[in-house]
């Protein structure tokens, strides 16, 4: 079906992106990360390669999506042992590919799986790994990556002195774009003596009952922070979201307080949103949060503090008690 290529003959020096494939389904985050990586690859005059580890070629449900992607080439490693996510085996396979193809960069989406695998691979290769990158650019032939730092209102630009350059890329930070040409498809053939063994055995899988949140692609986002004072008030955001056809987002502190699940965290270590309308209730706007929503088209802030960063960023800011405003708003909308 695809061109078969021995691992030792892989083209060298390219940009590799890990394609997340779980139980026959492609995770869209793998297509998102191709958008910034394509620009990086072009600036460095390198090819962009999307890499999949899968159990069998018949398993690919999303082949059409993959064919439309920005990748110049798509590489598949196919082995029945790769059907389940086995962190140690996956690491070994990825490390072998890196050793043979000496890529310039290797990138993962910052999904739970990406964040489990990337550090193992970085450890195996003894190279640096940047986390939750939401910006990548090439300057003086070097990849510059950035993320906000903790406790300061600054963005740090980072480089990696080791090779390949490695990073996990923030979810939702980039839009999926499609390529002009169908990528070349290749199946990588591993040596006969490669061991496909793992110390992990997946015994059972219980699918999540919750639907994955559609936060990163939501057109309208209503988001809450500490200014809502308690979990009960925060939960009212779901009523508002229902009325407005919105998704609910949150700041880091309220996720840590347990007011809402971490999947709804907007910001550096959470999701990046780009809705048409973003409404923040009781959110002052720490950089940790604002990097995840600053590209919203129209921002409404509801906060007591006139000098809060989110109030300044907003197209419309209402200075008042977020809790009272939310409650009265709901009352009026329902009547």
């Amino acid at each position: 079906m695809f061109e078969r290529i021995n691992i030792e003959n892989l083209p060298k020096g390219n940009i590799l992106a890990f394609g997340e494939f779980y139980r026959n389904e492609l995770n869209n985050s793998s297509l998102e990360i191709l958008s910034p990586l394509k620009e990086v690859a072009q600036a460095l005059n390198k090819k962009l390669i999307l890499l999949f580890l899968i159990g069998s070629l018949e398993d690919i449900k999303n082949l059409e999506e993959i064919k439309k992607s920005l990748a110049d080439e798509v590489w598949f490693v196919v082995n029945n042992e790769l059907k389940d996510l086995k962190d140690d085996l996956y690491t070994e396979v990825l490390a072998q590919i890196v050793k043979s193809s000496q890529p310039y960069g290797l990138f993962f989406p910052a999904t739970k799986i990406g964040m489990s695998l990337a550090p193992r691979v970085a450890g195996a290769l003894k190279v640096g790994l940047c986390a939750h990158v939401n910006y990548l650019k090439v300057k003086d032939n070097q990849i510059i990556m950035s993320r906000p730092t903790y406790g300061e209102n600054i963005i740090a630009k980072l480089v990696s002195k080791s090779s390949p350059v490695m990073a996990t890329i923030s979810l939702g930070a980039f839009n999926i774009k499609y390529g002009e040409r169908e990528p070349l498809m290749k199946e990588i053939i591993f040596p006969e003596n490669f061991s496909w063994s793992s110390k992990l055995k997946i015994r059972n899988f219980i699918p999540s009952k919750k639907k994955l949140t559609k936060l990163s692609t939501a057109k309208i986002v209503v988001s809450g922070g500490r200014g809502l004072k308690n979990k009960e008030t925060f939960q009212k955001l779901f009523e508002l979201a229902e009325i407005l056809g919105a998704e609910v987002g949150a700041t880091r502190p309220v996720c840590y307080e347990g007011w809402v699940e971490e999947e709804r965290m907007i910001g550096v270590s959470g999701v990046t949103v780009k809705p048409k309308i973003y409404i923040g209730f009781g959110i002052s706007g720490a950089l940790q949060h604002t990097v995840g929503m600053e590209n919203s088209e129209f921002i409404i802030a509801v906060n007591t503090d006139k000098d809060a960063p989110l109030v300044k960023m907003a197209n419309l800011a209402l200075i008042g008690d977020a809790r009272k405003i939310l409650e009265l708003l709901l009352k009026k909308l329902k009547s």
Partner: peptide, 11 residues
């Protein structure tokens, strides 16, 4: 826990 649900893993 992964995004898609929960896995029982023997190690």
């Amino acid at each position: 826990e992964i995004e898609y649900g929960e896995e029982e893993v023997e190690v």
